[in-house]
Simulated scan of single mutants.
Amino acid sequence: MPLVTTTEMFKKAYDGGYAIGAFNVNNMEIVQGITEAAKEEKAPLILQVSKGARAYANHTYLVKLVEAAVIECPEIPIALHLDHGPDFETCKSCIDGGFTSVMIDASSKPFGENIEITKKVVEYAHDHGVVVEAELGTLAGVEDEVNVKAEDSSYTRPEEVEEFVTKTGCDSLAIAIGTSHGAYKFTPAQCTRNEQGILVPPPLRFDVLEEVSKRLPGFPIVLHGSSSVPQNFVKMINENGGKMPDAIGIPEDELRHAAELSVCKINIDSDLRLAMTATIREHFVQHPGDFDPRQYLKPARAAIKELVRHKLIDVLGCAGKA
């Protein structure tokens, strides 16, 4: 099947109590690892590209890689999504360039300006058969061009969501309930330690999510900054020359609960980076004579595939939903 929008995906996910994985892609091996897992698990899929990915790999290369994945995986629906579009021009470029979904992130702007910018993108996108994700509230953390200090973050205000969705016409809404971008989502001071001495992050604000859901019944909600930062990969990195102290993510049981509610799309990026980097670092230590990129990118691709399989089955709940 050709690339699809997220409209039907989200309707089924909302009704079925699961979420679609939105995985960031930057190169061929990442695309292959994600799509091979989704194909085997018969899971619908969103492949998303950030402004930074387009600058790194080139828009055309990324689109063609995703189109190749569609050919290789005709059994599963795949959407191509712009992650954190910073302005109308970037969104327009992706809409004109083959994307089926775009996010306009004007969440750092005042409420009225966010509505104005989002509405402009929605009007252009809908005229071209493309759907739009918008954002209310501000997530902390660092990921590509997104860089928000903790003190500048803010939870979504449920009392604003109805007006925002009505006036903009957006198709899905990313909200802030305590997730955070990057691998360093929380400082140790923000966390507690369990009996094993492991840092435990503050719980997500499900009260905010539930209130938003009441005000927007049936409307698909999105969670950004939802990597879980698997500690086995952090340990592998640190044991093989890396330095990632206190990297911590969102507990997977909380993400699964969010998916059972109104969250239809969960973004995952840092976990893919960790799986790839940990595997490559370990390979270089164990095989110092290797210099062929295929020798270390092949196990890195396999690690991404297994990570994604786990997410599809155990976290998102979308395995078998294609």
Rank of each mutant, 00 (worst) to 15 (best):
V102W: 03
I95P: 04
G97A: 14
D83I: 13
C73Q: 10
F99G: 01
A106R: 09
C94K: 00
C73P: 12
S101L: 11
H84E: 10
E72C: 13
P74W: 01
S107K: 07
E75S: 07
G97M: 13
T90K: 09
F99W: 03
V70D: 02
P74A: 01
D96Q: 11
F111M: 02
I78G: 00
L82H: 02
C73R: 10
C91A: 03
K109R: 13
T100G: 09
C91T: 06
S108W: 12
G98F: 10
P86I: 02
D87C: 14
F88G: 09
S93T: 15
E89V: 14
K92Q: 15
I71E: 12
I76H: 00
F88H: 12
E75R: 02
P77T: 11
H84S: 04
S107L: 06
L82S: 05
E75K: 06
I95V: 10
C73L: 08
S107A: 10
T100P: 11
F99A: 02
V102I: 09
P86S: 09
V70Q: 09
C73E: 04
P86C: 04
V70R: 12
F99E: 00
F99Y: 07
A69H: 00
S101I: 13
P77I: 09
E72P: 07
A69N: 02
F99Q: 00
E75G: 05
E89A: 14
A79Y: 02
C94W: 01
P74C: 02
G98L: 09
G98I: 11
P110L: 01
C73T: 11
T100Q: 08
I78P: 05
H81E: 00
E72F: 12
F99P: 04
G85C: 14
F111K: 03
K92R: 15
S93R: 15
H81F: 06
D96F: 09
C94Y: 02
F99I: 08
D87I: 10
H81Q: 06
D87G: 04
M103W: 07
D105P: 12
P77N: 07
G85D: 13
V70I: 14
E72K: 14
S107T: 08
F99H: 02
F88S: 12
P110W: 05
C94G: 03
I95C: 00
I71Y: 08
P86D: 05
F88D: 09
G98E: 09
S101M: 13
H81P: 13
I104C: 04
P74S: 05
P86M: 07
A106E: 07
A79G: 04
G98C: 12
D105T: 10
H81A: 01
S101P: 15
V102P: 07
P86K: 08
C73S: 10
D96I: 12
I95R: 02
H81C: 06
I76K: 06
V102D: 02
I95Q: 02
L80N: 08
K109H: 13
M103H: 07
D96N: 07
D87W: 13
C94N: 03
P110A: 00
A79Q: 07
L80Q: 08
T100N: 06
D105I: 04
I95N: 00
S93I: 15
D87V: 09
S93K: 15
G85N: 11
E72R: 13
M103T: 10
A79V: 08
G98Q: 05
E75C: 03
F88A: 11
T100K: 13
I71D: 10
K109I: 02
